[in-house]
Amino acid sequence: MPLNAEARTLLDLLEQLGAPPFETLDPVEARAARADMAPPILDSCFETLDLNAGGVPARLYRPEPSDEIPGLLVYFHGGGWVIGDLQSHDNVCHALCVGSGHAVLSVDYRLAPEAPFPAGLDDCIEATTWAHAHAQELRIDPDRIAVGGDSAGANLAAALCHGAPVPIRFQLLVYPVTDAHTDSASYEENREGYFLTKAAMEWFIDHYLAGNHASRDDPRVSPLLASDEAFAACPPALVITAGFDPLRDEGIAYAERLAAAGVTTSHVHFPGEIHGFFSLPHMLGEARSAHALAARALADALAPAS
């Protein structure tokens, strides 16, 4: 399938703007460049609250009040473990809260290389554990918690689910990083020209592992390499992938491993899309479709037991 026309227009615009590749910047410059690209909010939830989730900065998104206590999606933003923050994915969290009718807790985990692996993963585990323990304060059901994220955030969600610190009902994985070896066919097919490049991913991974606390073979870094037993213990999942994405093949492989382990898994592929499309509903119609799909899956997964 050819590249989506809207995605082509977006890539042409980025080329005209002459934005420097992330791998040519230092992390501070890259974060500033990403901050300048923060998308607008299309769907505003009922209420947001910035809070401290066990020592980890976070933002809570509340749905419209109702007689039913909502579930909670704990969301980990993308950005290669190096860039991104609460603001960069504010639009995504608003949309998922509004669309699903459940609360969302966005986690501002520590970033590499200043805080390399496992700092970000530790923060995600801490915030999820805190949310479960403080469910009454958050006004959510502790038995209906999901985790999710996009790209590096989906990597963190997947890794968390292999040793979940609290019961997790569902995982939402949007073009996840699942194998840090960067040697799949999709890395070669999409190594440059489609927003996320192979060179950028090498830059991100090198920064994430800068502390030398793990290798690319560690399942906490490359969740695709986890044991069959770890996969079998995972919660149901929705995995979203994009055709013109270096991460395409590892996302597909991850969905296949979940399903082979007996985990209820939905895999939805957007063959004409690029990495990052999920964050751009103001520019890409398929992003809006993906938001609706993810929100429906969350609504179903976090529905109270009948």
Rank of each mutant, 00 (worst) to 15 (best):
A199I: 04
N212E: 15
P235F: 08
R31T: 08
R139I: 04
N190E: 00
V166M: 08
C97N: 07
G262F: 10
A115C: 15
N4M: 06
P281W: 03
L96E: 06
R144G: 10
G211H: 08
G78R: 09
A103L: 02
P116I: 11
L11T: 01
A115W: 07
S227Q: 09
F46E: 14
S215V: 05
A152E: 10
P246W: 14
N91Q: 13
P39Q: 12
E192L: 06
A119N: 07
E137M: 13
Q16S: 12
A299V: 01
V166G: 05
H134K: 09
R59E: 10
E126I: 14
S266R: 13
A290F: 00
H162V: 02
E126S: 11
W81E: 00
E256G: 00
W203C: 03
T48V: 15
P167F: 03
N155F: 02
R110K: 12
I140N: 05
V92Y: 04
G80A: 09
T197N: 07
P235V: 09
G18E: 06
A200W: 04
G251R: 00
F22N: 09
C45L: 11
T178Y: 05
S151F: 01
V166W: 05
I83G: 07
R216Y: 11
S279K: 04
H77M: 09
E202C: 03
R34C: 08
R296H: 13
P65I: 09
A305G: 10
G148P: 10
H291S: 03
T197G: 14
T241G: 05
S279E: 14
N52C: 01
N155W: 01
A226H: 05
R8V: 07
I240D: 00
S279L: 11
L49V: 05
G193S: 02
R191K: 14
G84M: 13
L60P: 01
H269C: 05
M201I: 12
R288F: 01
L72H: 07
F170V: 03
G272S: 03
D123K: 08
E229H: 13
G80Q: 03
L172Y: 02
I145V: 13
V239M: 00
P27K: 06
N4F: 04
R296N: 14
I125H: 05
G163L: 00
E29Q: 15
E64H: 12
F76W: 04
V74I: 11
R31C: 06
D67K: 12
H267R: 12
M201V: 10
P236W: 02
A185I: 05
S266Q: 15
N52L: 03
E137I: 02
P63L: 04
P176Q: 06
A158P: 11
L17T: 05
A133G: 11
P57C: 11
H102Q: 14
H181F: 09
G149H: 10
A299R: 15
G84I: 09
D12A: 15
I145Y: 07
A233M: 03
